[in-house]
């Protein structure tokens, strides 16, 4: 399989976090200059979101993109994590109840060596890398997030998948004690997501354990979550407790909730609209004008061959 890598990014070109956190100037663009001036002044008080502990020995990755990262405050306050409520501002307020230590991930199904791994062991499996990825939500907004993680393949190889394994299912914790959202039947808990095995083994697919060089905040899916940058954000299951190998495509939470709106693949595709809204454009958080959405979220060079010959309108 040929994996083309984007041009290397010199670390000197990465904008420091302080600069990322400059407040948005959308009001200026909207023609309210004087108010924007006041907003710019107020921008100085930004960056007070809770800081996790720093992750050591994080390497740069050639898979990172060279785009301005979304401010830490926005990445950690605007989240879809229905276990903590359906409002996007809820997880940041509710997720502190989640206990991420001790934490074990059970890996089972069609594998030679089913295992239950503690988070400490998982963190030692592979060197941590910074992966600056685009993240496109199915709702029509996007971010650029400097994840810290390692290739999912490194974790999956631990259990030696059988030849019959074709799909991988990911299960999020469902704990009514710490997750108020699961008391409501808005989705069929626990949250399930799935990938085809080749998608799961693709080098762009990572298990994220941090962002902005720090441990993952709970509202972003601590202690570990899936990141598949060419798919809509909901494919990235958060706070994973179980990984299961299967010979058939697992039924995911969103497919069960609305099969006509959410398919198994859910690749970012500007040509296939959500039945109720367009997917042709997106609002990058912090920007005023909408951008055109890119096929496979701009990762087509690396992943298009996974879907060669497939009708992506049918397999949405």
């Amino acid at each position: 399989m040929l994996i083309r890598r984007p041009a290397d990014l010199a670390s000197s070109e990465i904008t420091p976090r302080g600069l990322f956190e400059r407040r948005r100037t959308f009001i200026k663009a909207a023609g309210l200059g004087s108010i924007a001036g006041a907003a710019a002044l107020l921008g100085l008080e930004a960056g007070n979101a809770m800081a996790g502990s720093k992750l050591a020995g994080v390497r740069k990755s050639p898979f990172s993109i060279d785009e301005k990262a979304t401010p830490f405050k926005d990445v950690t306050s605007y989240n879809n994590y229905y276990e903590f409520g359906t409002d996007k501002y809820s997880p940041a307020h509710e997720a502190h109840r989640l206990k991420t230590r001790p934490w074990t991930v059970s890996i089972e199904g069609l594998v030679r060596k089913p295992r239950s791994l503690g988070i400490e062991d998982i963190l030692r499996l592979a060197p941590l890398e910074e992966r600056i990825y685009r993240m496109r939500c199915v709702e029509g907004w996007s971010m650029v997030i400097p994840w810290v993680g390692f290739p999912l393949a490194a974790l999956l190889k631990q259990v030696e998948p059988l030849g019959s394994a074709k799909f991988v299912e990911f299960q999020t914790l469902s704990d009514p004690q710490s997750m108020p959202g699961v008391k409501s039947p808005v989705l069929d808990w626990p949250y399930l997501e799935g990938l085809r095995l080749d998608e799961a083994m693709h080098p762009l697919t990572i298990m994220a354990v941090g962002l902005y060089g720090e441990e993952l905040p709970n509202q972003n899916g601590a202690p570990l979550r899936l990141v598949v940058p060419w798919k809509y954000g909901f494919k990235g299951a958060k706070s994973i407790v179980k990984i299961r190998f299967a010979d058939r495509a697992p039924g995911t939470a969103w497919m069960k909730a609305a099969p006509q709106e959410y398919g198994f693949y859910s690749n970012v595709n500007p040509g296939v609209d959500h039945p109720r809204w367009s997917q042709a454009t997106e609002r990058r958080i912090g920007e005023f004008l909408k951008r055109k959405t890119l096929m496979f979220n701009g990762y087509g060079e690396q992943v298009a061959q996974l879907y060669a010959g497939m009708d992506l309108k049918k397999f949405y």
Partner: peptide, 16 residues
């Protein structure tokens, strides 16, 4: 809304 926009207190996606 006007005050919130001026003080950038409308969250990550103010237009929404």
């Amino acid at each position: 809304l006007v005050i919130g926009a001026a003080q950038d207190e409308l969250g990550a996606n103010p237009i929404e």
